[in-house]
Amino acid sequence: MNTVTKSLTRTAADATPATPALEAREVEVTYRAGAFAKTVLKGLNVTVNPGEFVCIVGPSGVGKTTLLRCLSGLLRPTAGEVRVVGRTVVAPPEEIAVVFQDYSRSLLPWMNALKNVALPLKGRGVSKAKREAKAREVLATVGLSDAAEKYPWQLSGGMQQRVAIARALAYDARILVMDEPFASVDAQTRFELEDLVLELRDRLGICVVLVTHDIDEAVYLSDRVVVLANSPASVIDTVEIDLPFPRDQIATKSLHEFAEFRGRILGEILHSRAQEK
């Protein structure tokens, strides 16, 4: 049941593309509070190619969310730049949809699932009939055909996060940016959602950037893992995860290589921590 079928669309993404889908170049972010200034990110480079699944891991508080806000155009970096399909980002770009960690807050409690999903389309001025049809379609994609009329607070945490993912899909984004999307659901639901996202990536040919502090999750999902550490944070390693697709919660995680990747990343993070002290 946890097996993800690999579809043909993946082959197109396998080819090395000319322009990366999303790119951070020498990004630096400094927060100022009065006379105090704190540099959170410095000299940071990340490249995400079309169709790629990239996870960004690092210890809590390292600045993962800050990086993600930069990548999605919610925060202008103090120095350096973020590019989407070669274009410098100055405002949240149309190609990107963000799925927030706090699904209970990013879904609007006064709207049912259907209206929540259709809201970005309404913002674009799509007609009512069209946006509802689209919303129903994407809700079906995430397995929530029956929950369209339910309000977020009538749904379980996992279902709420599915609604949030559906909203991102309705937006027709080419790039899904996810901030610890499965951090507040139980383990079983988490595995289901992980496989759902893998499946959506295959089926729709989108690329996914996912921030997490969970190394297992990162290795399991990714084509590539970007490891952040230190303060100010920078990329200390980029690991190509050449585990076979489709991935499977049990089979993949019992592979010898899986353990190796995991050990390598964990070692790097612990090492950087030890050096800081």
Partner: peptide, 8 residues
């Protein structure tokens, strides 16, 4: 953030 990101 959500309204910004989805251009609402």
């Amino acid at each position: 953030d959500m309204t910004l990101s989805y251009g609402i």
